[in-house]
Amino acid sequence: MNTNEIITIIVDDEQSCLKSLESDLSRFPEIRVVATCTSPDNAAREIVRLQPDLLFIDVEMPGMSGLELLSRIQSDIHSDMRIVFYTAYDKYLLDAIRASAFDYLLKPYKLNELDALIARYRFHIAQSDKVNIEQSLRRMLLCNTKLAVQTISGLVLVKCEDILLFLYLKEQRCWQMMLVPDRKLYKLRMSTTAKDLLGINSSFVQINQDCIVNLNYLCTIENVTLKCGLYPPFTDIDLTVSQRYYRRLREVLDIL
């Protein structure tokens, strides 16, 4: 998984415009267009499912405007998603500003306009995401204070000891946080990486490619199978350490 990827979706009912923008975005190695949609209904499903970092959305579409589409799914998308309204009509500029758009791209755009837009996005990420994930999370959890974790559905207030483990969902390409005591699950932003999670606190260790566990709940590791046992009431959760991560795990454990 490329941690620098900018997950992107394009929504435009005009196939030629959609393909043109997709082609122009391919010039940026960090941008990964994961879906292109020509209908608002399909777009709504894909945006909620994939939770992109960057969304290009046409304003005028048959049946539902881009503004109406965003209003419909607003409660189901993460707050860090950056919206670029993409249209041939500048009359929607004020509405785009009111909808907290990140930028506004008029058709037909020039390549230098698209270049400037992506440069602004890169600068925005450099100034905000790094602080939010790598600094704020670590500082607040180490101080044993509650942290507001940004999930795709909203903010969740937790302490380090509230987190049992993180599981990576391959199909949805995002990490999921499991809390104690009720095992409630929360999907995290797609931009959140294993490195980010491991940096929160030294109690979190990665036991395989798709699982990071809180050491405070890890009870046993079998010699041959490397199966893990968690403390009650979590003994029914089936976890196994991979050979690759077992070597690293032994380095952080005090073994008698």
Rank of each mutant, 00 (worst) to 15 (best):
M1H: 14
M1P: 07
N4R: 04
N4D: 06
I9A: 03
I10S: 02
V11D: 01
D12Y: 02
L18V: 00
K19W: 07
L21H: 02
E22A: 13
E22L: 01
S23V: 03
D24I: 11
S26Q: 12
R27Y: 13
V33M: 06
V34Q: 04
V34E: 09
A43V: 01
I47F: 04
L50T: 01
L55V: 04
D58T: 02
M61V: 02
M61F: 04
P62A: 03
E68Q: 13
L69K: 10
H78Q: 15
S79C: 06
M81D: 08
M81P: 02
V84F: 03
L93F: 15
I97P: 00
S100W: 11
D103L: 06
D103F: 08
Y104G: 05
L106C: 03
P108R: 09
K110A: 13
L111T: 11
N112I: 12
E113T: 08
L117Y: 04
Y121T: 02
A126V: 02
S128M: 08
R138M: 09
M140N: 05
N144F: 08
K146A: 08
K146M: 09
A148N: 08
V149C: 03
Q150E: 11
G154T: 02
L157V: 00
V158L: 09
K159G: 07
E161M: 10
L165Q: 11
Y168K: 07
L169C: 11
M178K: 08
P181F: 12
R183P: 00
K184T: 07
L188Q: 01
M190K: 09
T193H: 04
T193N: 03
N201P: 00
Q206R: 15
N208L: 01
N208R: 06
C211N: 07
N214D: 06
L215S: 06
C219L: 15
T220H: 15
I221H: 11
N223L: 12
L226W: 00
L230D: 03
T235M: 09
T235E: 15
D236G: 07
D238T: 12
S242E: 05
S242M: 04
S242V: 05
L249W: 05
V252L: 09
V252A: 11
L253F: 15
